[in-house]
Amino acid sequence: MLFLQTLVNGLALGGLYALAAVGFSLVFGVLGIVNLTHGIFLVAGSYGALLLWEHLGIDPILSIPPVAIVLFGVGYVYQRTIIHWAVSRASLVASLVVTFGVAMIIRNLLQLWFGPDIRTITPSYSFSSVTFFDLRIDLVRLIALGMSLVVLLLLTALLRHTHFGRSIRATAQQPLAASLCGLDVERLYAKTFGLGAALAGASGAIIGIVQPFSPATEAGWTLNAFIVVVLGGIGSPAGALLGGVLLGLINTLTAQYIAPSMTNAAMFLVLVAMLLFRPHGLLGNAMGESR
């Protein structure tokens, strides 16, 4: 039963990791940019949900659409301006430095606006748990896991069955060919980046219910997203889900059967092993077949 409980805990944690990483994975897969501002978008989503909760009483789950829309706009403009300028004038590597710098600036701005204090969102159900036989899982993590699956399914449907999704995939696979077919590649890049920011904001709204956050927590979420992408593969929702669940299971199994202090060490050990033996992750680069 302890093993089953550990697996359930790992799945719940993995759902959270997957949700937090899918936007990062999409941007990495389509634009080839390691977006170090990802954690900032996520924490901004948490603060957005907090504001709506505190001032308008809107439940964090219901705050996902407005938070995602705002962050889509922010991500769109950010890509069209700063990132586009950096990439077009230097190289993709420049985007790494630029996103790192912007993350530092926004982290400090968030701290100026909201203060450095740790914040939490506590709707009435945030302390509840669900029991199934002897297995117990807290409700908010269950909700996070469910939302993670919903968001990942919606993203999969969007990428597979809509013109916008097909355009994104085409652009990711062959930007020149996509451009020759009449697609506005630059605008698609911006929309994809906006979508990545929106997904990060949506996950931030949910993570805000699950655990405490402050501007300083953003770096940890960017790092987790990077590990998830390395584990699962780049660009696909399925890869993010697989990577997230694996990371969650590594975390809980290590805590339970080796030592809680070794969880980070185990995560990085697996990260190094993956980079050595399967650098494209378990599912490979979903967007890069033709590159």
């Binding site: 550990t6 944690l13 655990q211 975390n251 805590a255 339970q256 030592a259 809680p260 070794m262």
Partner: peptide, 17 residues
């Protein structure tokens, strides 16, 4: 006497113990 890493996202397994 349980040691945790400096950055922690989840302690459900520790709480089982």
């Amino acid at each position: 006497l349980i040691e945790l890493p400096t950055s922690v996202n989840d302690v459900t397994n520790v709480l089982s113990q």
